[in-house]
Design a protein around this nucleic acid. Structure first.
Length: 565
RNA sequence: UGACCGAUGGUGUAACGGUAGCACUACAGUUUUUGGAGCUGUCUGUCCAGGUUCGAAUCCUGGUCGGUCAACCA
């Protein structure tokens, strides 16, 4: 090779700690160079942006290093799980743009196998059926500072345990009367090693196995063994499972497994400012009707973000930018907003919509004349086509774009001031008509025909306004969303306070608006920019003749900032 | 008062014993028929104390601070 290596300019791609582990394993031929990750949601709720981070991590790692990813539902607690959630989760993963290795898997697929493995442990005298109540077990476990006490049933014979376990399975005991426990170490400094429960009795209908079982495996027992059964190489979970890793490894070791030995690795979950991320709290917001369902556009759920107008690409970029590490973090929601603006700025068609209209009359424009003015659909896109925008004597502009007595740097319309109407003409405000309450009801202007958009003109103005021709205006409904909470960390409030005390009362405002005819072409699932206002997305309930838009995010607004400060 | 995990600008995240970089935020300039976008720039950082070393964000020791762990939840 005569290629010259230039070390000083060569930049090593920076890898997160999981990528480093995977690269090393691959390089060292661990698992025969195989990479198989998994995304293991419990179908007891909807996916949120934190799960999206985990999805991007697991699927992303496999994509990057030529591996595969399983989608496995961790459905070991039938009282909390349902197919509604299963379906919603599959839809979200697909929508994010990831493909799992077929078929979809379930921990419940392995209930028979798990039972056999439990019997194996009993035979090795590594598991036993305990008769103590939940409370007794809990107190018997001791505290992190003091060792626990051994169960009276810890040393019963293998034969008796086998019989007891069988009786648990066939339903001879009531819920809570028996439990299968691993026999490990009641004095371990790790609470999870103090004879953890492997099976409990639940006479519950399971969404997949119906009433076949009345004993169900606990997470720690089911999860690692499912990983092993599937041949998972890297089992990636969040930090709270760090203490479980010792147990994860203990089960695998004592099962004398052959073949791929899965390894558990932990990373820090995502936290976002101005929202909550715990499933319990999200469920509470839904059930207590603070929001309109799991896919309410204010929710940090994947379905909520989708309805809000976020794109899969923006969420994947976001997941990329937040990074992966082991320290607790709190991501500023403005990073998420940046990611969607960045995407939509490049890709969203533009249209003019007025949300708080005031009538403007161009006195010197002929009464019965209408023009169709060409306007670029997306100035950021070199290939962009044009749309035609109707213009005539009477138009709407935003009330905020006019001030009778403006401050110094107000570049918009005011008596005697001149502005450009985007894609149209420069106008000058001549007079104002007010109603009985003193509110401006009509603004009268003069236009300058030689300033038509595209023409060379010496007249210069500081401001450009969007507008909508009244004759042809399309009436629409618009939902203006803001952050759901008024404090950056609603999950971290003082004692005696509840996260719900900090719900932002103004997180949703509904207004009527008027749009140019082009917005009739807007459909749900696609993002648009209403010029100078923000990005909007047609709601799923939007239909021709009844257009409803959700505001995804505003444009940055340095004028509003200056005004405030 | 135990065990485990962690600590780099306002927020995240790199640097793997050799120039503390990148992104977001904030601010400033430039540009603009979106007060948007773009472009340019600025501010702000290695938790503390010792040690090893020619050299420490990085290795060692001790502290401090934060998080996690006592469900028949996952």
């Amino acid at each position: 090779m005569d290629k010259i290596e230039n070390k000083s300019t060569e930049k090593k791609p920076s890898l997160n700690f999981l990528e480093q582990i995977v690269e090393n394993d691959l390089k060292n031929g661990i698992n025969d160079g195989r990479l198989l990750t998994r995304f293991p949601p419990e179908p007891n709720g909807y996916l949120h942006i934190g799960h999206a981070k985990s999805i991007c991590l697991n699927f992303g790692l496999a994509e990057k290093y030529g591996g595969k990813t399983n989608l496995r539902f961790d459905d070991t607690n039938p009282t909390k799980e349902s197919t509604e959630y299963v379906n919603a989760i599959m839809e979200d993963v697909r929508w994010l743009g990831f493909q799992w290795q077929e078929p979809v898997l379930y921990a419940s697929d392995y209930f028979d196998k798990l039972y056999e493995l439990a019997v194996y442990l009993i035979k090795k005298s590594k598991a036993y059926v305990c008769h103590m109540s939940a409370e007794e077990i809990s107190t018997g476990r001791g505290t992190p500072q003091t060792p626990g006490k051994e169960s009276a049933w810890r040393n019963t014979s293998v034969e008796q345990n086998l019989r007891e376990f069988e009786k648990m399975r066939i339903g001879e005991y009531k819920e809570g009367e028996r439990v299968l426990r691993a026999k490990i170490d009641m004095a371990s400094p790790n609470m999870w090693m103090r004879d953890p429960v492997m099976y409990r009795i639940m006479f519950a209908h399971h969404h997949r196995t119906d009433n076949k079982w009345c004993i169900y495996p606990m997470y720690d027992w089911a999860h690692g063994q499912s990983d092993y059964i599937e041949g998972i190489t890297h089992s990636i979970c969040t930090l709270e499972f760090v203490p479980h890793r010792q147990l994860y490894d203990w089960f695998l070791e004592n099962l004398d497994i052959k073949g791929t030995r899965p390894r558990q690795y932990e990373f820090a979950r995502l936290n976002l400012t101005y929202t909550v991320m715990s499933k319990r709290k999200l469920l509470q917001l839904v059930e207590e009707k603070y929001v309109d369902g799991w896919d309410d556009p204010r929710m940090p759920t994947v379905s909520g973000l989708r309805r809000r107008g976020y794109t899969p690409a923006s969420i994947r970029t976001f997941a990329d930018r937040v990074g992966v590490a082991k320290r607790e973090n709190m991501i500023d929601v403005s990073l998420l907003e940046f990611c969607i603006r960045e995407d939509l700025n490049k890709n969203a068609p533009r249209a003019m919509v007025v949300l708080n209209p005031v009538k403007l009359i161009i006195d010197n424009y002929p009464e019965n004349q209408q023009e169709k003015l060409p306007a670029i659909i997306n100035p950021e896109d070199a290939e962009s086509k044009k749309r035609m925008v109707p213009f005539s004597r009477e138009i709407y502009i935003e009330r905020e774009d006019f001030m009778e007595d403006p401050p110094k740097k107000f570049f918009r319309l005011a008596p005697g001031a001149e502005v450009r109407l985007k894609y149209a003409y420069i106008i000058r405000c001549d007079s104002v008509i007010k109603d009985e309450q003193g509110n401006t009801s009509e603004i009268h202007c003069t236009y300058f025909p030689d300033t038509k958009s595209g023409m060379q003109s010496n007249r210069k103005v500081k401001g450009t306004l969007h507008w909508v021709n009244i004759d042809t205006a399309v009436e629409i409904e618009v939902k203006l969303y803001d952050r759901l909470f008024s404090v950056p960390e609603p999950e971290n409030v003082d004692e005696g306070q509840d996260f719900k005390d900090f719900i932002n009362a103004d997180s949703l405002k509904m207004v009527k608006g008027y749009g140019e005819p082009f917005i009739n072409e807007f459909f749900p699932g696609k993002g648009f920019q209403f010029e100078r206002l923000g990005y909007f997305s047609a709601d799923k309930e939007s239909a021709p003749g009844n257009l409803i838009f959700n505001r995804t995010v505003t444009l940055r607004d340095s004028w509003a900032k200056e005004n405030r400060g």
